[in-house]
Structures are given as structure tokens and as C-alpha cells.
Amino acid sequence: MRPGTRTSPVRPDAHGRPTDQRSATERRIRRGHGPGCARLGVGRIRLCRKWPGVSDLSDGSDDHALVSAVLRRDQGALGEIYRRYGGAVWSLSRRVCRDAGLAEEVCQTVFAELWSRPDRFDPSRGRLRPWLLTQAHARAVDAVRSEEARRRRHEREAQLSPPAAVEFESSVQASAIADDVRRAVDQLHPDERDVIQLAYFGGHSYRQTAALLGAPEGTVKSRIRAGLEHLRRALGNEEVTP
């Protein structure tokens, strides 16, 4: 604290507690919150120890209910969505952007747009987490491309980033990944892992991925599909197909 800024007549004593160096009225009020003061009805003080709404949201509300609450301009709901999925949105943005500042910008855009246009999320078309990640991925790819374009203008040289397969290994081995997901990734063929890493976490187009791996473009697409299908089976979320 800067000296002299605390202009209150309530001077802290040696224990940092305020002392009674103030007007009689104020002392009267101050005493008011002591036990037995009827004038201010302090005995009826209703303390609030839990934020209303917030705990309810974090306890049980499903994502659809949260988005509906955002639609009703409930800011607590946006906070709860961020609490649930902000980490994943951040982690994907950071991987694709490979730049913390750019990634923060992406996250900011994703949540600001959810706030502005929550109606764009249609729960009948999928879940909220994948939807947010899809938004983040597209934003991140756009951000990287415009950043690369900007750099290209300066350097007159387009440079593809080197393969980041190692990062994929580390990202899926992160403690944040559930065991079943790690096992599912382990079951993937290395070729499938590489294309998913480069395209999804690396933000590369399938053409760039093909160039980076020295593989035909059609093959890269097939591997992406095979990898995703294997992943789905291994994760056990293969549902009845139409």
C-alpha cells in the first residue's frame, strides 16, 4: 500500500484490524454488526458463502442448457463453458498456432463469438466440445495462414513448418489425455498418427501434409479417414450407423 492512500479514519492497529478512530455515528454503525445490535438488524445478516447459479451450472447442467443460458445472456453460463472447455480450446489453438499470442487471440474469438452468436451451435448436430474445437481449429488455421502470408510478404519465401510428429506423441501422452484415448492412439498405425497430427494438430492442409510426408495426396486423405475410423472404434464410441 502506498503511504497516505488509505484515507479512511479507520486506522489499522498493530494487528491490522481497524480501530475506532471515527465519528460517533460511524462507531455506532460499526458496532452495529456486533452481536446483539438490533438497530441494524445485523443479527439477521444473511451471509452468502457459495455463488448462486455458478455451482448449479458446474454441478449438473448439460452443455445444451448452458448454451441456452448464454442465449438468455447469462454470463455465468459462458464462464462455466469456459471452465469446461477453455483448456481444450487453448490446447488445440496453441498446437495449431505454435504461438501463444496468436492462440490467445483464437480462444478469445471463439468464446466472444459464442457469446455473440450462441444460436450458431445446434445441439442436434453434435456436442459442444467438438463444436468449439472445430471453431477453434478453423480460426487457428486462418490465423496461421494470414500470419504466414504476412511473413511471406516480408521474406518472399514460403516456408512450410517441419513435421511435428514428436509433438503429437507428447500431446497425446500428456496427463490430460485419458487412458482410453492414449490406448486408442497407441493402436493407430504410425502413418495414421502422422497424418492426423500434421493435419489436425499441425493445421496443415492434406496437400501440405502430403508434401511433408512425401506421400500421394489421395493416400493422405485415405489415411486420415482410416485413422479417424480406427480411433473411433478404439475409443468405443462407434455408434449404430444409419
Binding site: G86, G87, A88, V89, W90, S91, L92, R94, C107, G126, R127, R129, P130, W131, L133, T134, S171, V172, A174, A176, I177, A178, V181, V185, I196, Y200, L228, L231, R232, L235, N237
Partner: peptide
């Protein structure tokens, strides 16, 4: 997209 979402780790922002 569900599978990719599960593949995406949660990290502290």
C-alpha cells in the same frame, strides 16, 4: 469430430 475432441488434451489456459 467427437473422436478428435477426445484426442485434444485439456491444458490449463
Amino acid at each position: 469430430r467427437d473422436a478428435l475432441a477426445r484426442l485434444t488434451p485439456d491444458e490449463p489456459a
